[in-house]
Amino acid sequence: MILSKQKPWEEILSYLDGENNVFILGCNGCAQASGTGGPAQVEEMKNKLGEIGKKITGSAVIDFLCEKALVKSRLRNKVEQLEAADSILVMTCGVGVQAVSAAVNKICHPACDTVNLGGSRGEWRGSERCLECGECLLDYTGGICPLTACTKGLINGQCGGASKGKCELDPEKDCGWELIYNRLKGLNQLNKLRRFIAPKDYSKMMPDVKIISTSHWALERTDQKEGG
């Protein structure tokens, strides 16, 4: 299961600045279990955005938004609502945001930070897409994660090593930053690349002690406490 937590309200609002029509997507999988993007949270988000005057063109909660093929088929009957939206607010882990970005040609804003996972990389198989960094950057990078798409994990732009659109490490691998550039260009969002992204807080990637402690370890501690 992939754990996520909702981003601060101000951050979500800053993403939606200047956009009046929003489509909201949630997920019945991990996001529901995390309490960040299930039916209840999607409903709540609709109301909160409605209160500040945003028009919600539609919403959907899909089982496993991390499965790209599923996203496409489930959104097929929502095409009009999606087209009426300026952007999509995706209330899931980073894999979900990237699956929607890959399936729909719209700006996709992450509403959550992905915190960590318990053994799963989502259902969109084939490559690692989310590092669970706890500070989701997908809003600035067109729904393509620079930490996983760029071999060096650069967050302020391309290195000088790309050749013919490929990474210097592997001529078969697309340069992540060229993918990001082309995606943002298509969405008329190239200005996002001019923003300085401050150094990341990598402590957010460290698992919480509670998560890395095993039940056995927990039991021993309880025993010790009770014994003492």
Binding site: Q158, G160, K164, C175, W177, Y181, N182, K185, L193
Partner: peptide, 10 residues
């Protein structure tokens, strides 16, 4: 840089 994207990104 040898693509339009790479040139602009630089």
């Amino acid at each position: 840089a040898d693509t339009e994207a790479a040139f602009e990104l630089q």
